[in-house]
Amino acid sequence: MNMGLLRVVAGLVLVCCLVAPLLPLGLWSVARGWFFPQVLPATWTLEPWARAFAPRSEIPGALLTTTTVALASAGLALALGIPAGRALGLYKFRGKALVELALLAPVIVPGIAVGLGIHGVFLRLGLTNSMAGVILVHLVPTLPYVVFVMSGVFANYDAEAEAQARSLGARPMQVLWHVMLPAIAPGVMVAGLFAFLVSWSQYILTLTIGGGRVVTLPLLLYAQAGAGRNDQAGVLAMLSLAPGLVILALTARQLTGRGLALGGGAR
């Protein structure tokens, strides 16, 4: 009984701590001039939101850019990551450990170390200052997660079914479509959604490679916070939360804690 009470209290503390940092962000998005010692804003207003979606605001454009980049980057990461994950999950081969290390290295080596150098690579490839370049560079943080998730999915995948389908006369494409895809679909979704969220959250890579030309929500968030416009920053923070919430709501059934954790979360 005592243990049960302890659980409830600990759970309550946990919930409060998780929500707490979001409170001031949400409050600022509907406040004006909210400063010490006011516990709650003296002036409540929807003006920051109205301003965010006023005709000349940069925010709708940034929302579109951020979404496009994240969708494209997640799609590319899946296209590259599913085959790689399949190879790592299903087969043993010489040099596998090395390949795994190479594909996961971007997660272990801090982004800034690579980011400054990647700028040089992209300049030489003529990819700086463009959305294409930003989409590509977002593969650095997203691809490892997709490979990570997909190799886990394939490790539990029964390849025997493919062999059976083949022996029954199915062509390779049919096997991929009718046997493999249904089996890995939930894993693909988890990997894709998290690639999306990882891309959605990028700041340094977008800034260096996009050269400020590709304006995403995190760029605007830092610009507004850096200018002391807490109300606008609050709106941007709330908007940044949106896709995570939407994804969770839409896929509450498919997404288990396991999938989310494997995805690594937004970085």
Partner: peptide, 18 residues
């Protein structure tokens, strides 16, 4: 799960104002 989807930039700003 929600927390996992929040960008670091947002969390850091929230912690600052908290």
């Amino acid at each position: 799960q929600i927390n996992l989807t929040i960008p670091h930039a947002v969390g850091a700003l929230g912690i600052l104002w908290l």
